[in-house]
Lab assay of single mutants.
Amino acid sequence: WKITIYDQENFQGKRMEFTSSCPNVSERSFDNVRSLKVESGAWIGYEHTSFCGQQFILERGEYPRWDAWSGSNAYHIERLMSFRPICSA
């Protein structure tokens, strides 16, 4: 599993790669995730830290803005603060 997060939209700004769970992006000096690329595996992104709040399934691909992973939710969530890989047995 591999995911790359960015602190600006369209894959700009600070970037960081992960191959395992991140319970709080702010502990990695990110205020928020504004864009991301899922390089391999599937991940679950969460609205809040500690894997809480609205969940987003993140499959392999590029997500240049928050609405790319938020989709058409009843209330739009511009925040992604934690994530972890989906492990299959």
Rank of each mutant, 00 (worst) to 15 (best):
E17V: 10
G71D: 13
C52E: 15
M81H: 05
W66N: 08
C22Q: 04
K37D: 02
S20N: 12
I86Y: 15
S82P: 03
S29R: 09
N32I: 13
Q55C: 08
H48M: 13
F51R: 11
Y75E: 15
N24F: 01
N10I: 03
Q54N: 14
C22L: 05
E78I: 13
V25Q: 04
S35C: 00
K37I: 15
G13W: 01
A42N: 13
P64E: 06
F51C: 03
E78M: 10
R60H: 13
I77W: 07
K14M: 08
G71H: 11
A74P: 15
A68S: 12
E17P: 04
P64W: 05
C22T: 05
D67H: 13
S20I: 06
Q12S: 10
F56P: 00
R79Q: 09
S82E: 03
P23Q: 13
E39R: 09
Y75D: 15
C87L: 11
E59T: 07
G71R: 14
S70V: 14
H76G: 14
N10E: 09
D67R: 10
S21T: 05
S40Y: 06
R28I: 12
L58T: 00
G53D: 02
F51D: 00
W69V: 12
S82T: 01
C52N: 15
G71L: 11
G45F: 15
C52G: 14
C87Q: 14
R65D: 10
W1C: 15
N32M: 11
T19F: 08
Q55Y: 07
K14P: 02
S20L: 06
S88A: 15
Q12M: 09
F18H: 04
I57R: 14
S26Y: 10
N10D: 06
Y75V: 15
I86H: 15
E17T: 12
V25G: 02
S50Y: 07
R34G: 07
I44Q: 08
L58R: 00
E59D: 05
C52A: 14
G45L: 09
S21Y: 06
P64C: 07
S70L: 13
M81D: 04
A42W: 07
D67G: 09
S72V: 12
F18W: 04
Y46D: 01
N32W: 09
Q12Y: 07
S70G: 12
L80T: 02
E27P: 05
S82N: 01
K14F: 08
T4N: 07
S20M: 08
K14W: 05
I57Q: 09
S21N: 06
V25C: 05
R84L: 05
F83M: 05
R65S: 14
F11M: 05
S88N: 13
Q8N: 06
